[in-house]
Structures are given as C-alpha cells and as structure tokens.
Design a protein around this nucleic acid. Structure first.
Length: 416
RNA sequence: GCCGGGGUGGGGUAGCUUGGUUAUCCUUGGGGAUUGUGGAUCCCUUGACCCGGGUUCAAAUCUCGGUCCCGGCCCCA
C-alpha cells in the first residue's frame, strides 16, 4: 500500500465539504471589504523566496531543478508571490490595491499538531498605502474573518516593530546584535535576553526600560506609558478599529514577528485551544516590491493558517452544514429504468441535484442507499403511477409520500 | 535536527506483560430474510497484525533498523 507522503493529507468528501464551506466564508468576507482574489503558481523560482526570507529557508523549501535546469521551489508562503504578481502585472493599477488569495503551501518541516508539509493559507494585502487607516482596515478584515468563521476563543495582539527597535538603538544595540535579542523579547524571555544585552554593553537600568516596553500589554490606555510617534500611530489605528466595532485586539509592544522587512504595525492572532502551534494569523506592514525589481511600495497584509483555524473550530465543537442531494430516483422495477433515468435527467436540467441507482438493486436496497447518501426525497418511478403520468415522491425524513405529476415534480421538490 | 508515545480489516478495538489452535468484538461495505418502500431485527459474506532484518521448533507478541502517525522542543517566512 502506498500512503500519502509525510505531512500531507487526503481530504475525503466529508472533509472537503467542510473545507469548502469555510473557504467560501473567507472569500465572502474578503470580498465584502473590497478585496479581489488572485491566484499565483504553486511553484516559483526559488530565488523569490530566498530574496524574501534569506538563504536559510532553502533548508525548509521543497526546491528542485526542472528539465530546463531552472531552480524552482514549491511556494512556502504566498506573500512573496502576491507581491511579485503585483510588480509584474498590477503595478500601474489604481492604489490602493486590495487583493486576497487562498491556496496550499509547502514547507519541509517536522509535522506535528497543526503543522503539515502541505498546508493551506488564506491571505490578503493592501498594496500602495501606508496609513493608520490601511492598517486598521487590514486588521478589521482579519478579525472579521475569524469572527465570521465562528471561532469563539481567540486573541489578537497589535504591536509596532519600531518601538522596541528604536529603544534598543537608543541604548546602544547595533543592527547586527538586534535580531537574537528581539527574538528573546518576543517570547518575553527577559532572563535570556539580558546576557545578550549585557554583552552588547547595555546597562541593567537601560535593559529594564527595554523589558518594560516589551512587556507593555493591554488596552489603548497602555499606549500612554510609552512616548513616541509609533504609539501615537497605534492609538489612531485602534480608534479606527473601535468605530468599526473591532474591540477585541490588545496592544502588545513585545510583538516582533520574524523578519526584518516589516516596517511598522505588526499583529498576530492565536487560538488558545490549539496546543504548541496556536498562532492562526500573522501580519503587518512591510515593503517587499523593491526586492523583486519594482519600486518601493508600502503594503499591509496578513495570512491566516486555514488548517489551524479548522482545527480550532473542530476543538470548539463547531459543525458545518451537511450538503444533501434533492432527490434519489428509484425505478420500482426494471422496466421503468429508462423512465427513471429520463426523470433524473430532467431534474438535473431543472437545476436540482438528483442521483439514481446504477446497479440492479432491489427497491429496498435502493431506498436504503437513498437514505444513507442523505437524499431529501426519494422519487419512485413505477408502472402504477406512470399510467397517470405521475411518480411517488417520498419525504425521506418524515416518510410521507404523495403522487406527483412528473411535470410538477421540480416545483414540488424545490418548494420543500 | 532533538525527546517521548504509538501503528491489528474502510473506521473503532481485544490479544502483546508471560511467543504456541481458525486473531476478538463493534461498526461499515456486499448479499439475503422482505416478489413496489430506508433508518429495526436476524442470517450469510468480503476484509487486518506498517515494512525489512534478527532470536526461536514457532513472532501480532521479544529484538534491531526503517517508515508513517500522535504529542512536545527547535524553527516558524
């Protein structure tokens, strides 16, 4: 037996129905805010991702050479492809540009709860604007999505990449020393950040001030405690969010995000029901286009980990509606089979979903099948009824059945 | 890359410690009891020890390696 490759999954009909249901919620939510969908290739030149994330990501990339000796890679994320597509094909579109995308990404990592080698991301970007309004719009969209999916428990934290960086620079940390320190501060591991800072020549008193900022968490009022244009900016973002009814985000000035192309506001969302891999959404404002040969354009965007959100919803006991077919057509005897197929074809042309017995089963078996595939009605095509131009329509949940003229059948089924 | 727990029909499981008859039970699938009516019951039936090496007269059971799954660390664009 051949199994699906490590870290990948088959999505069977029940899974797919559920996934498509939530996908369409995400699409509708994005469209409601004026975002339009794009689709980019599943593989790209490996260079694209190296430009974005540095050469180290090659280790976690599904990279390969094609027959033309091109260095390609399955996409590990979709922000870089989206910005590449913008540079290539949308750079002269009226700004700001609002786009969204959904699709699978691939990372060569150790699978664990909520982490797969093939996983699905939903993301959105606003390209060509750098204002508190833009950032608020993006956060509002992200939160709107999480809400419309029906997730009950989640946390949203908003920070600003500039606050900590400026403070660290002020106390004498060089740009090269900053990343490992920021990483510790992001996790609020001050004990581990301190030795690094000490080595870089920072005094204890200055370090405490840095920890203070990294630990600034709470409502809009905590912004008053930290001076600077960044906190004033965040206050404006929050006020826009507030009037749109988005009140759940907290301020967390310790939010750092991994990469240094972020330029300002950053935010994250997590679902506590998930274990170690609980982050469900991440985003912020950045510039990337200049790396890909375009002009520098400010962008704010986010990506939602679709699989994780679904996992969280499942843990919360959310149920998605089950799709049913309208009618299962059953020939009462073999000499009415042609008429049964004729009726099934007619129902389908009328836009109804109709299934029909394909093997020579007895009626009881066919009825059982109709029941197990979740058909709303059974249409019994037998000689007795056909004589008067009618069939028997059976409501599968109540068991009631009536004689219905074939010409009235679509209306009867639709009217249910 | 590291640590721990696992893998028995399509799904869920018993058996494994203490090696030994035809590998248990539930469910699902197929057929029948029911000759024009499903969800109940009964009967029949298909179907499994992750892969490979080792120990042994004998391995689902012990052992080693691989592989995959689950949880965690690291990482997380």
């Amino acid at each position: 037996m051949i199994q699906s490759p490590r870290g990948t999954r088959d999505f069977l009909p029940d899974d797919m129905e559920r996934r498509r249901f939530y996908e369409s919620i995400l699409r509708q939510t994005a469209q409601r805010s004026g975002f339009r969908e794009i689709q980019t290739p599943i593989f790209e030149e490996a260079e694209l991702f190296i430009l974005r994330s540095g050469p180290n990501i090659l280790n976690e990339l599904y990279a390969f050479k094609d027959k033309g000796d091109r260095d390609l890679a399955l996409r590990p994320e979709m922000t870089a492809p989206a910005i590449r597509a913008f540079v290539n094909g949308m750079s002269n579109d009226p700004k700001p540009i609002k786009i969204f995308y959904f699709g699978q990404c691939f990372r060569y990592e150790r699978p664990q709860s909520g982490r797969y080698r093939e996983f699905f991301q939903f993301g959105a970007e606003i390209i060509g604007a750098a204002t508190p309004e833009t950032d608020a719009e993006v956060i509002a969209t992200a939160v709107g999505m999480i809400r419309s999916l029906g997730l009950k428990e989640y946390k949203v934290r908003i920070g600003h990449i500039g606050v900590l960086r400026r403070k660290l620079a002020e106390v004498g940390i060089t740009a090269e020393d900053m990343p490992p320190i920021l990483q510790k501060l992001d996790k609020k591991l001050y004990d581990e950040a301190w030795p690094l800072m000490e080595d870089a020549g920072v005094g204890r008193e200055d370090a405490e001030k840095v920890f203070d900022i990294a630990g600034t968490v709470g409502g809009i009022e905590v912004l008053d405690k930290v001076e600077g244009e960044e906190t004033a900016y965040l206050a404006r973002v929050l006020s826009y969010l507030s009037v749109m009814g988005i009140t759940e985000p907290e301020i967390d000035l310790g939010v750092v995000r991994g990469l240094d192309y972020y330029t300002g506001m950053v935010f994250e969302a997590e679902a506590p029901v998930l274990g170690a891999e609980k982050q469900i959404c991440g985003g912020g404002s950045y510039t990337l286009s200049e790396l890909f040969g375009g002009e520098k354009v400010f962008t704010t965007g986010f990506a939602i980990g679709f699989d994780r959100v679904l996992l969280a919803l499942e843990k919360e006991g959310a149920v998605s509606p089950v799709k049913r077919i309208d009618a299962y057509v059953i020939a009462a005897s073999s000499d009415t089979k042609l008429r049964a197929f004729e009726i099934a074809g007619m129902l389908r042309r009328e836009g109804l979903s109709a299934d029909i017995d394909l093997s020579d089963r007895k009626m009881a078996k066919a009825m059982k099948h109709a029941s197990s595939v979740g058909s709303v009605f059974a249409v019994i095509v037998g000689n007795e009824e056909l004589g008067t131009g009618a069939v028997t329509l059976r409501d599968m949940s109540s068991g009631e059945q009536r004689l219905i003229k074939i010409s009235d059948l679509p209306a009867e089924i639709r009217g249910h």
